[in-house]
Design a protein around this nucleic acid. Sequence first.
DNA 1: CTGTTAGCGCGTTCAA
DNA 2: TTGAACGCGCTAACAG
Lengths: 329, 329
Amino acid sequence: MVTIKEVADYASVAISTVSKVLNNYPNISEDTKEKVRKAIDELHYVPNTIAAALSSKRFARVALIVNLNTQTQAIDEITMQYLSGAMNKAMEKNVEVVTIFYSMLEGMTEDEVIRYFQSQSIFGIVIYGMSKDDKVFHNILKREVFKNVVVDAPFISENTSSVWVDNKKAQYDVAKRAVLDDNCKRILYIAGKRNGYVTDYRLEGIQELAEEKELDLKIHYGEFSELEARNITLKYGKEADLIVCASDLMAIGAMNACIDIDIFRPVCGFDGITLMGYVGKQMLTVRQDFYAVSQAAIEEICLLLSGEKGRSRIMEHKLVKLYYKDIIC
Amino acid sequence: MVTIKEVADYASVAISTVSKVLNNYPNISEDTKEKVRKAIDELHYVPNTIAAALSSKRFARVALIVNLNTQTQAIDEITMQYLSGAMNKAMEKNVEVVTIFYSMLEGMTEDEVIRYFQSQSIFGIVIYGMSKDDKVFHNILKREVFKNVVVDAPFISENTSSVWVDNKKAQYDVAKRAVLDDNCKRILYIAGKRNGYVTDYRLEGIQELAEEKELDLKIHYGEFSELEARNITLKYGKEADLIVCASDLMAIGAMNACIDIDIFRPVCGFDGITLMGYVGKQMLTVRQDFYAVSQAAIEEICLLLSGEKGRSRIMEHKLVKLYYKDIIC
DNA sequence: CTGTTAGCGCGTTCAA
DNA sequence: TTGAACGCGCTAACAG
């Protein structure tokens, strides 16, 4: 491994001079710049980021804390969008990110997690899909040891900002369109997990709509499970004109239940995952741009890390109708 | 940030002493060990891995080079399994991994990629799903600058070892069972991408079977595309008794084509992705344990990095029948 | 504009 | 068994 010293010797300048051209300092003559560049080139010199980081003391890595769901890969698609959006932006911003699955932290106490992160020089964390009963990360946020960005969860403070899709409005919008399209009155709403923040927001959305349109609204928690949604639909589907689900996966479950008991009900989903295109039926849903959300999250964390104040933001959503033909063409 | 020096002062010992208890050196009295541990604890000292790495010069990171397919999330599931398997094992082995998408390297020359990796202190790389015409990584392998592990590609050398599923045998096995189950004679085989290594192996598998059982085998390249497979099936499906596809996604395309032209043909796939469970039909396929494959890949790279010789290995596969009910129950 | 010097936080000899 | 001292590769004052 060729070091900065060898480059300096080769170009017969001082080490610091090499460092300066490396880091684009002003006040270097074109002549010496050229000499140094030539030396770097000929020696195939590659700066050692480790040493640079240690020396400059401004070395911050950002942990991306994501979920891996082995049950269904519907979630994988979302996670991958999150990851690639974040990494893309991180490269642009020149910060280093490390991917961490919740499962890797399982069983660790709050202190252990903090130490683990610190030992890795992690100063910023982006938390995707935090649940209400995640004590560990709640406390980590509270202790303000890191700069934090939470995606789709309501935390804002000096060191924490939030990036989220307006789930309430999105749920309101998609359900409204479904209600109007088919002139429905009796709605079966299959909510998500009780411990999820987005669940509450989406619930608020549907409730606002119900009030506004004077709908007959029945609510059941489907826990984001396809099977659960299926069972709920089997039980209560008949008495509804429309089934609104808080996730696409549950919408699939609801649809299939309708088929099984031989009733037809419009169903609408939430997320806009590609899987929907494979079910072979048509469904109204909300598409979120997870990639863009994640990019925004990285921008936020960069702001925070650079000492500026975060400015939490709300991302766009849009309504889409998915069906088979949309996907394979 | 509390440093080793503060710990040393607090415990009134020398810095080197602290370092020694940290790294479990012998020849330290229990007394001082205890003193130091107490200091570490009370000061909440966290060793700085950056500095440790720089100092000890034995710092190796491993790059996981994966694909992100925005077209279909079928691939996402596989990639996530790869990633989590690798990270899990990496944590156990105490090596640091960084995730890199091919798309992040797009447009970079071979030298640029090498420099980029080197600047990141990446000394080992694990390549998932390399294609035959990926000049950049072919040359990187050839130049032996890193320690390498390739998954499902045929490269073995001093610094490179390979971890793979026996694709030939797997394709042979699954097709054989399908052929026997329905006593088929005329096979339509929809192969993968021409530039993929696994494509060739799978092709060999089906060809061996055809020879052995004296089957009438027609081969077409579906490029791992659902639409392509669909079109091939529309054209040639009628003259076959059985359709064997080199991926589950293509199998879905083939199935749907059969329905469209109102013929019934058994179809068999490859990979065993969860998506299959959502198609609502039954299909024979091959399940690979991507998680285990990736764990093995990390073990290999650790061997290589520690200077030992790699021992490339072949992973198990198994035949499965997927359908809707398997998934939601 | 360039070079000298002093660290960054830690591992590792080598004396004591 | 312990500690002083040096160096890892680099950045950043400061002096010249």
